[in-house]
Simulated assay, not measured.
Amino acid sequence: MAETPLPNSTFLRPDFFTLTGIPGLEGVQAWLTLAFGPMYLLALLGNGALLAIVWIDSTLHQPMFLLLAILAVTDLGLATSVAPGLLVVLWLGPQPLPYAVCLTQMFFVHALTAMESGVLLAMACDRAVAIGRPLHYPILVTKARVGYVVLALALKAVAIVVPFPLLVARFEHFQAKTICHTYCAHMAVVELVVGNTQANNLYGLALSLAVSGVDILGITASYGLIAYAVSQLPTWEARAKAFGTCSSHICVILAFYVPGLFSYLTHRFGRHTVPKPVHILLSNIYLLLPPAFNPLIYGARTKQIRDRLLESFTFRKSQF
């Protein structure tokens, strides 16, 4: 069987790719740093403060808050894997990125996204046990078991995302050296490949459905159990209090999955109708919005964390 001839304008695997930023918005993309810069700063300060509070306050060394700390670590990693390069590209224009660094960024972005989705599922299961079986909660949900769950989620995220850079690394020829994006997204790099990319496309679709689809089903099932348990409580006050413990988690779920699903659907089914700048903006918002807003949500709606923050500020004021 004869090999398919390569196009005339092809390049051997480049040492560097060039990230262009947001095509079509070159004249105004520097102004976008005024939005993405504060989001990244908020992610750093907010998640850092959450981690410090959970670390310092021994009363917060409980499964629920340990999962929240893992979510904060994941958010810090996710925001940092994207935001610094994004801000440089938006402010200074197209930037070179070594090939190996590109594949590394690709791995971390997708692995941390999968990890965040898994942690949200674990938090939903934690709330389901706490509300559905409160007397057995201390026995069923221990710090050791939380550690095992987090380790399993991390290993799963690594295992399912490793094929992404490997599937790209097998190609030797590329149509261009320029990535029309702000970071090395898997499909943005695959678009430059010369060769049969069906495996990349199918694995990307399968991974999106397997990770987000399974986690969303698990979260939905957990909240179904929560709703049933809440409905069995005798008074409206008890029901409101029980369901109120889930309000922060529900807001975080919406902040993560709504932009993510919108970005995914427009990329998969609106590639020819939705302008490319919109795709790129949505993908960046999807990666930076949850890390920026999760600490605010938990800080405002979780009594223990809110009280600890107020105590810290009150103590500092009393020193001056």
Results as ranks from 00 to 15, higher is better:
residue 67 L to S: 06
residue 6 L to Y: 08
residue 276 K to F: 15
residue 202 L to V: 11
residue 162 V to L: 14
residue 176 A to M: 02
residue 81 S to A: 15
residue 113 T to I: 12
residue 92 L to E: 14
residue 272 H to N: 10
residue 167 L to D: 03
residue 222 S to D: 04
residue 58 S to V: 12
residue 167 L to C: 01
residue 221 A to P: 03
residue 138 P to Y: 10
residue 313 F to L: 15
residue 281 L to E: 05
residue 3 E to G: 00
residue 25 L to K: 00
residue 17 F to C: 07
residue 178 T to W: 01
residue 154 A to C: 13
residue 291 P to G: 05
residue 220 T to M: 12
residue 264 Y to F: 12
residue 140 L to Y: 09
residue 308 R to M: 09
residue 247 S to H: 09
residue 123 M to D: 01
residue 161 V to M: 08
residue 19 L to K: 11
residue 263 S to W: 00
residue 291 P to Y: 10
residue 79 A to V: 04
residue 24 G to F: 02
residue 200 N to D: 08
residue 24 G to I: 01
residue 267 H to F: 15
residue 27 G to H: 01
residue 223 Y to V: 03
residue 100 A to I: 10
residue 57 D to P: 02
residue 79 A to H: 05
residue 38 P to C: 02
residue 237 E to C: 09
residue 227 A to L: 07
residue 311 E to G: 15
residue 215 D to W: 09
residue 183 Y to P: 01
residue 299 G to Y: 07
residue 152 A to G: 14
residue 285 I to K: 04
residue 53 I to K: 10
residue 227 A to T: 01
residue 247 S to N: 03
residue 191 E to K: 08
residue 244 G to M: 00
residue 262 F to G: 12
residue 155 L to F: 11
residue 245 T to D: 06
residue 21 G to A: 05
residue 130 A to D: 01
residue 144 A to Y: 13
residue 311 E to D: 15
residue 95 Q to K: 14
residue 154 A to V: 13
residue 223 Y to P: 02
residue 69 A to M: 02
residue 79 A to I: 04
residue 144 A to D: 13
residue 43 A to M: 00
residue 192 L to T: 04
residue 320 F to M: 12
residue 130 A to Q: 01
residue 16 F to G: 11
residue 195 G to E: 01
residue 297 I to Y: 06
residue 125 C to W: 04
residue 281 L to A: 08
residue 230 V to A: 06
residue 19 L to A: 10
residue 42 L to N: 06
residue 121 L to E: 01
residue 70 I to P: 10
residue 87 L to R: 04
residue 91 W to F: 13
residue 19 L to H: 08
residue 34 L to G: 06
residue 144 A to R: 15
residue 297 I to D: 06
residue 141 V to R: 15
residue 31 W to K: 06
residue 15 D to I: 09
residue 233 L to H: 07
residue 305 I to H: 08
residue 24 G to D: 03
residue 66 L to A: 13
residue 183 Y to D: 05
residue 303 K to V: 10
residue 77 G to K: 08
residue 61 H to P: 06
residue 138 P to D: 05
residue 66 L to S: 14
residue 215 D to R: 08
residue 312 S to Q: 13
residue 247 S to L: 10
residue 46 G to T: 08
residue 252 V to Y: 03
residue 288 L to Q: 07
residue 67 L to T: 08
residue 200 N to I: 06
residue 206 A to F: 11
residue 96 P to H: 02
residue 80 T to W: 09
residue 103 L to W: 00
residue 202 L to Y: 01
residue 25 L to E: 05
residue 267 H to Q: 11
residue 87 L to P: 00
residue 297 I to E: 09
residue 129 V to R: 01
residue 293 F to V: 15
residue 43 A to D: 04
residue 142 T to E: 09
residue 87 L to Q: 03
residue 273 T to V: 08
residue 255 A to P: 05
residue 150 V to F: 15
residue 251 C to I: 00
residue 128 A to C: 02
residue 164 F to T: 07
residue 285 I to P: 03
residue 198 Q to M: 12
residue 135 L to N: 13
residue 143 K to W: 13
residue 261 L to R: 02
residue 53 I to C: 10
residue 23 P to F: 00
residue 205 L to G: 12
residue 42 L to M: 09
